[in-house]
């Protein structure tokens, strides 16, 4: 098994109502020097979270103890820029299992799915509702139901469904990943390779 199974997640959420959050903000390049996958959560949103002298920036949401939970809610075009999977690792390592936005950058979305973080794309209207609901009451819970592919604001019962292809859904539900799949295809791949022009 490549990562933890994902079925139903019920949690409070952390709101980050900023658009175009790029992976350089999620984890700045100077923290990409490790050769092992550990400790990236400490530097999640490093330069938004800490001053140059490493004291916390009090106004940043991760430094506000009112907001916590396993769901991160981001503005439109979340995860743009660099392909660094370290961004998804940092999100996971910090403790998030799901990122909700009205639009995701392709590579970040793929990286999340490959490590067991569920990207949930909702409409701009629903995203706005979530931000407003959390603003009104940071303790409200959101339920992500992967088998049913729904996201629900439990306080009002408002719900939206989200897309995920059946292959990836099956992977998430069972904790499988693409490498598990591909390693079973080696002979087929070898036969294919022989026929390539170069």
């Amino acid at each position: 098994m490549a990562y933890d199974k994902f079925e139903i997640l019920k949690s409070t959420a952390v709101p980050l109502p900023i658009e175009n959050v790029d992976t350089d903000q999620i984890i700045p390049a100077r923290f990409l020097k490790a050769t092992e996958r550990k400790g990236f959560g400490d530097n999640l949103f490093r330069d938004w979270r800490y001053n140059p002298d490493n004291t916390p920036k009090e106004q940043f949401v991760l430094n506000n103890s009112i907001y916590k939970g396993k769901i991160l809610i981001g503005g439109k075009n979340f995860g743009s820029g660099s392909s660094r999977e370290h961004a998804a690792w940092a999100v996971y390592d910090y403790g998030f299992r799901c990122v909700v936005s009205s639009f995701f950058a392709d590579i970040f979305r793929g990286n999340c799915l490959n490590i067991g973080v569920l990207p949930v794309q909702v409409s701009a209207e629903f995203l706005d509702k979530i931000f407003k609901a959390i603003e009104a009451d940071p303790t409200i819970e959101i339920e992500i139901d992967l088998p049913k592919q729904t996201i629900t604001l439990l306080v009002t019962g408002e719900q939206e469904s989200f897309e995920i292809n059946s292959y990836k859904k099956d992977n998430m539900l069972n904790g499988f990943d693409d490498i598990d799949y591909l390693t079973k295809m080696k002979e087929e791949i070898k036969d294919f390779a022989v026929k390539q022009p170069f």
Partner: peptide
Amino acid sequence: IGTSEVEMVLSSQC
């Protein structure tokens, strides 16, 4: 691609 995919290509060329 991400690092998980780098591993995929190393191990399966796909």
